[in-house]
């Protein structure tokens, strides 16, 4: 497996394969030393919970990006599903959960249809869907926040509950991530995303059903985003027409920081989880620092994303030429 021996090659190999995990652990270790309040269970749990929603979208996005696509519609999907949950919460708990997920699936199928049948590039297709879905969210709410009625306390549990000391949203994220990781590495569909991102024509000639694979990826992303929207509304106790705005960029950033190349063909769910958590902990550390203006968060995040991508590019070409 290893082509070279010795410490440095082994280290660069480790960094190339698990760079984001190493970065995450390193960051957590350093932050634990500097900020006593960082290493409290409560703080760590909070970060996990904050990131679990974007994390769900990012897991779906990983499949899309590995197969060479992009999905900009997820923020709107999060808003619409959250609103639908709020609107239906009074009539039936079951409907309030199932309907948003179904609508999410429909949005994903629409994305996939536009991309695979109408041959519109994913960037434009999902940008259009993003605007349209956001518009639907405005229309059905008239730009007003919709309160969630929660007689049975189920939504409070979804948003704020704990199972064995783990916040419910974190649990959902963990289960989804593990299942997705297995799908990604050990199923025909999972591998097909890599094949398509690597060389779509070759994949088609190798018998990969490219259109079907893309359909699954986009639908998965939208359904997981709907799930994120459900959790978001449940947490806030309201469905908001402006909810989830810009989350597509956070999800994409999480995927990219994790080490999945936006050009497709490489990456993984584990990397994305690390990437999303890195983002979460950076925000957290900036907040703990206290004296940093929170507007600086964005500037720092931008720098970090850029740094990560540059390092990855160097690692890639260096590895190949050596």
């Amino acid at each position: 497996m290893k082509t070279k021996k010795g410490f440095m090659p082994a280290l660069s190999n480790l960094l190339a394969r698990h760079g984001s995990l190493v970065a995450l652990l390193l960051m957590m270790a350093i932050a634990s030393i500097i900020y006593p309040e960082f290493r409290t269970m409560r703080n760590i749990t909070n970060v996990f919970r904050q990131m679990s929603m974007v994390g769900l979208s990012a897991v779906g996005m990983t499949f899309v990006i590995i197969s060479g696509g992009i999905d900009l519609s997820i923020g709107s999907t999060i808003a619409l599903s959250g609103i639908l949950l709020a609107k239906l919460s009074g009539s039936s708990v079951l409907l309030a959960i199932v309907v948003p997920l179904l609508v999410g699936a429909v949005i994903g199928l629409v994305n996939a249809f536009i991309i695979t049948r109408l041959r519109v590039v994913p960037f434009i297709a999902t940008l259009a869907v993003q605007m349209a879905v956001r518009g639907v969210a405005y229309v059905i709410t008239d730009m007003q926040s919709v309160p969630v009625s929660d007689e049975k306390g189920i939504f409070t549990f979804i948003g704020r509950g704990y199972v064995l000391g783990i916040p419910f949203p974190v649990l959902v994220f963990a289960v989804v991530a593990i299942v997705a990781a297995v799908i990604s590495t050990r199923t025909g569909y999972g591998r097909s995303t890599f094949a398509i991102g690597g060389n779509e024509n070759a994949a088609r000639m190798m018998g990969i059903r490219v259109e079907r694979s893309k359909m699954i990826s986009f639908t998965t992303t939208s359904v997981l985003s709907a799930l994120a929207g459900i959790i978001l509304s449940a947490r806030l106790g309201a469905g908001q027409p402006l909810g989830g705005q810009g989350w597509e960029m956070d999800a994409i950033a999480g995927v990219a920081i994790g080490g999945t190349l936006l050009s497709g063909g490489t990456g993984g769910i584990g990397k994305t989880v690390c990437g999303v958590l890195i983002m979460g902990f950076i925000k957290n550390i900036i907040n703990l620092q206290g004296n940093v203006n929170s507007y600086w968060q964005n500037i720092i995040m931008g720098m970090i994303i850029l740094a990560v991508i540059i390092i990855q590019n160097r690692g890639k070409t260096g590895g190949e030429r050596a």
Binding site: R191, F194, A195, G198, N199, A202, M205, M206, G265, T266
Partner: peptide
């Protein structure tokens, strides 16, 4: 090339 460059030989 009619293969997927990034995937392993075996795959």
């Amino acid at each position: 090339i009619s293969l997927i460059p990034q995937l392993s030989v075996a795959e």
